[in-house]
Structures are given as C-alpha cells and as structure tokens.
Simulated scan of single mutants.
Amino acid sequence: MMQEINNFQEVENFNCSRLNESLTVPVQYDIGSNDVVTSHTPPSVRDQAVPGFIHFRPYDPKGVPNALCPGVRSDSCRPSSICVGGINTNPGNSRTCGDFAGWDGLDTDRPTAEEPAGFAKSLNDVASSLLLFTRKRVS
C-alpha cells in the first residue's frame, strides 16, 4: 500500500469545489477590478479563488458552509480564508471566531497592513467592515 501512495502523482487541476451545492453569480464592478480582488486574496488560496463573482454558501470539504465569498468564486479547500459568515475548521489557527473566521490565516502567517500572507488576508482587511451593494440593472 505504501508503494502505491509513493507512486501517486498530483491530480492536475485538483480543487475542493462543491459548486453544485452552492450559488455563484458574476459581478460587474463600478469601482475596482478582478486584479484588485486578487491582490487582496491570500497567496495560499489565490489559485483557487476565481475573481469576478459573489459566491453564496460555499462549503468546505467537511461540509461546513460559509455565508458568502465577496468578489470571488471559491474552489478552495479552506473557503474560510476568503469567505465570510462561517467557521474556520482548520486546527492550525487558534485565533479565529466571528464573521471573518478564517481571514487571520494560520498562526504562522505574517500578513502586513496592506499585504496578505499565507492563508491570511491583510491586517486592514481583517479589521474591515464588509458592505455589499446591489442595484437593479436597467435595460
């Protein structure tokens, strides 16, 4: 069995997405862009966060939902790093609670005021408020 495990190759494009159990809606920016959203995404989940969406009820692999991911669609194994309104199920962080449960990342992550690091958002993002605005599109 160990020989088989040693022979295992990384699965190309693997992600923990459970998109069929949630809702994603594309967004149109009045201010900002996909590049701005990506720059605020923690580096360790950046390749699993597709900008340009609002993602409602993203699930982690344990089946724990978050309320929403603002600005991104999460294919992440740790959606709590980029989503709000859930709990962080990662045992590597003892500082998490509240609506921004996973934004602090791991105890070993060292974000700055402006730059995210590891699984953590920037310190300014962690201390922020989240406002979502919608408007009815006029045809």
Rank of each mutant, 00 (worst) to 15 (best):
M1V: 11
M2N: 14
N7E: 14
N7L: 05
N7S: 14
N7H: 07
Q9M: 06
Q9R: 15
E12K: 14
N13P: 00
F14N: 06
F14L: 14
C16D: 07
S17K: 04
N20C: 01
N20H: 14
E21G: 06
E21C: 05
S22W: 04
S22L: 07
S22K: 08
S22G: 13
L23E: 13
L23D: 11
T24K: 11
V25P: 00
V25T: 12
P26V: 10
P26L: 09
P26Q: 09
V27Y: 03
V27E: 06
Q28R: 14
Q28H: 12
Y29W: 15
D30I: 13
I31M: 11
I31Y: 11
I31E: 15
S33A: 08
S33P: 04
N34S: 10
N34P: 01
V36Y: 09
T38P: 00
T38E: 12
T41P: 02
P42Q: 06
P42E: 04
P42Y: 00
R46H: 03
R46A: 15
D47M: 07
D47T: 09
D47C: 01
D47N: 13
Q48H: 11
Q48W: 04
P51R: 05
P51Y: 02
G52L: 10
G52S: 06
F53M: 05
I54C: 09
H55P: 04
F56H: 11
D60H: 02
D60F: 02
P61S: 10
P61D: 06
K62Y: 07
K62T: 08
P65E: 09
A67E: 04
C69T: 09
C69P: 04
C69N: 02
P70G: 10
R73S: 10
R73V: 03
S76N: 08
S76L: 04
S76Y: 02
C77T: 03
C77D: 04
R78P: 00
P79V: 06
P79H: 08
S80E: 14
S80Q: 12
S81R: 11
S81C: 14
S81N: 15
S81T: 15
I82M: 15
I82A: 09
V84S: 04
V84C: 03
G85I: 09
G85P: 02
G86E: 06
N88K: 03
P91F: 01
N93L: 01
S94A: 11
T96W: 04
C97E: 12
D99I: 11
F100P: 01
F100I: 01
G102V: 05
D104Q: 13
G105Q: 05
G105L: 06
L106N: 09
L106F: 08
R110P: 00
P111L: 04
A113Q: 12
E115H: 10
E115V: 03
P116R: 02
G118A: 03
K121S: 13
S122D: 03
S122P: 05
S122V: 05
A127K: 12
S128A: 15
S129T: 12
S129N: 14
L130Q: 07
L131P: 00
L132F: 05
F133G: 12
T134G: 13
T134K: 08
R135N: 08
R137I: 14
S139Q: 09
S139I: 03
